[in-house]
Every structure is written in structure tokens, then in C-alpha cells.
């Protein structure tokens, strides 16, 4: 450890730092985030896409099969059931913003105790999906459920929605729509509080009221919120898993299968890691397309 060269090095270093500080600081600040993102998001994505090209049961050596998993997937009737159910889920989930907006408008008033009422409407969003799934499954249960206890009293015949290959998926989506509506409501409520009262007043002055006011003044102001709400609904429709797992486990005989659950089932119950990864890859592409579309819209709007 000689003393002489040290100051020069230090001076050199600091001069170098001085020169490149502007360029380096963002990189240094970004590094931890980028590193973690690469390690925990990008790497797993790449790894699961790679795995989708193999046949693997978790123990035997991986066997390269090229696109065979995908060829099988695209000829697999269960895959199409799952895809159709995801799309059906998506279509029905687009009702959530409508209901959510309705509730938000209704709750956006200054009445005594409105906070408590808002909190009540928010409840389903706060409850875990697993609990919601259980509540709905019990409610709809054909033998022990509350629904079939009520229906005969109203003079109607009992039903068994979760046992029907045709209706079970709607029962599951309905359970999902409940918390989703609450979530949309919260987002719209926040949007509505951002709405300036003067704007409404001046619109009223100009003679706008009722639907007119909503359509031409309130809604355009809520556009950014609507955008987020729609994106959230699309994403949660595509990644639906927990309700299916709790309420039906994909049954009866695959009729309530969704891509997320099929991926789980093939990977962890059937121990077909490659096939599960292929489903994951398709789901990723689907979700990527949707999110990409939204981001593109967002960018376009910001630039405008």
C-alpha cells in the first residue's frame, strides 16, 4: 500500500466520474430494478418458453420435442374449451366497468353515513378470491346450498348450476364479477372525486342534465379511469384461476377449464412440465397481445 499513487488515482477517478456522472447515474439507479426484473420476470419467461419445447416429467432427462407440445395443444379439445371459457369470461367481465360506474355514481353523494355504505360495497374486493369462491360454491351447492333452500319457497324448482357442463362456467364467472365490480367501483369513485364541481355546475348552467350530462361531461373526464378499468378487467379475466380451482377444479369434465388452471393441472397434477409450459406460453402471448395493445393506446394518447 504505497501512499504516492493514491491521490492521483482518486483524482483521476473523481474527474472521470465528474465527466460521466450524468450518463451513469440513471444506469446505476436503474440497475437494481432491472437486475431483479431480469432475474424474476424475464428469466422465468425465457425459461418457461424453453421448457415448452421439451417433454419432461420432472425426473427423467428432458427430451427435446421441438414444437410437438404446441401441435398437440392446438389439437387438444380441452385447450379450446379453456380458450373459449377465457374469452367468455372476458366478455362478461366487461360488464364490471358498467356496473362499477353505476355504483360509483350512486355512491358519489354527500349523505350521512355514505362512507360506511361505500365501505360495505367495497367489501367483496377486499375479501380473498378463495373465500369468495367458497361462499359462492356453498351458496350454489345443489344439496346443501342456500339457493336451493330459497328457490322452492319461491315456488321455483331447485337448480344445480355447478353440476352442469353447460352452466357451471357462468356460475364461476358470476362469482368473479362480484369483486370485479367492486374494484371498478373504487377506481371510478376515485375518478369522480377528481371531477371539479365547477365543471358540473357550468354544464348544468348550459342545460345539460341526466344522461346527457353523464355522456358528454362526466364520461369524457373519466376516460383515463375507464382505460385502466378496462385493462384491469381484461387481464384479470385472462388470468382467472383461483375461483375455478376452488369452485369446480375445472369440472364437471373440463367444462369450466380456463387456461390458467389447465396449465396448473397439466404441470402439477399430470406432471407434464413441457405441456404445461406450452399452455403458459400461449397464455403469455395472449396476455402480452392484450397488454401491448393497451400500452400502445396509452402511448398514442400521451403523445397526442
Amino acid at each position: 500500500m504505497a501512499d504516492a499513487p493514491m491521490p492521483r488515482t482518486r483524482a483521476g477517478l473523481s474527474a472521470w466520474w465528474w465527466r460521466h456522472q450524468r450518463a451513469l447515474t440513471p444506469l446505476i439507479l436503474l440497475a437494481p430494478g432491472v437486475l431483479l426484473f431480469a432475474l424474476f420476470v424475464l428469466y422465468p419467461i425465457a425459461e418457461s418458453i424453453r421448457l415448452s419445447l421439451y417433454d419432461w416429467d420432472g425426473v427423467a432427462p428432458k427430451v427435446w420435442v421441438g414444437l410437438a407440445n404446441f401441435t398437440e395443444l392446438f389439437g387438444d379439445p380441452v385447450f379450446y374449451t379453456a380458450l373459449a371459457n377465457n374469452l367468455c369470461w372476458l366478455a362478461i367481465f366487461l360488464l364490471a366497468p358498467v356496473f362499477g360506474l353505476g355504483l360509483a355514481l350512486f355512491l358519489n353523494q354527500n349523505v350521512r353515513g355514505i362512507r360506511a355504505i361505500r365501505a360495505l360495497f367495497l367489501m367483496p374486493f377486499v375479501i380473498s378470491q378463495v373465500v369468495i369462491g367458497l361462499i359462492f360454491a356453498w351458496f350454489l351447492n345443489a344439496d346443501f346450498g342456500l339457493l336451493n333452500d330459497l328457490l322452492p319457497r319461491l315456488g321455483l324448482s331447485p337448480v344445480a348450476p355447478l353440476d352442469s357442463g353447460r352452466w357451471a362456467i357462468f356460475a364461476v364467472i358470476l362469482a368473479g364479477l362480484w369483486p370485479q365490480t367492486a374494484y371498478c367501483m373504487v377506481l371510478y369513485l376515485t375518478g369522480l372525486t377528481g371531477l371539479r364541481p365547477e365543471l358540473i355546475d357550468s354544464a348544468r348552467m348550459d342545460g345539460a342534465k341526466g344522461m346527457n350530462l353523464l355522456w358528454h361531461v362526466v364520461l369524457p373526464h373519466l376516460r383515463p379511469v375507464t382505460f385502466i378499468v378496462a385493462m384491469v378487467c381484461v387481464v384479470s379475466a385472462l388470468r382467472s384461476f383461483d375461483l375455478v380451482m376452488i369452485m369446480t377444479a375445472g369440472g364437471p369434465y373440463n367444462s369450466t377449464m380456463v387456461l390458467g388452471y389447465y396449465m396448473y393441472e397439466q404441470t402439477f397434477l399430470s406432471l407434464r412440465y413441457g405441456y404445461g409450459a406450452a399452455i403458459a406460453t400461449v397464455l403469455f402471448a395472449l396476455m402480452g397481445t392484450c397488454v401491448g395493445f393497451f400500452l400502445w393506446q396509452l402511448l398514442r394518447r400521451e403523445q397526442a
Binding site: 360454491a137 350454489l140 351447492n141 345443489a142 344439496d143 346443501f144 344445480a160 355447478l162 353440476d163 357451471a168 369452485m247 369446480t248 369440472g251 364437471p252 369434465y253
Partner: peptide
């Protein structure tokens, strides 16, 4: 028992204990 597709084996035991 009808409507067996939506009940787990644990739930289905109840039918046995409820005389059904």
C-alpha cells in the same frame, strides 16, 4: 347421489350422516 360433480368427498360424507 345426484349432483356429485360439485362436491368434494368430504362434503359428500354429509349425505351419509344426514340419512340421505
Amino acid at each position: 347421489t345426484r349432483n356429485h360433480a360439485s362436491v368434494s368427498w368430504q362434503e359428500s360424507q354429509a349425505l351419509l350422516y344426514q340419512d340421505r
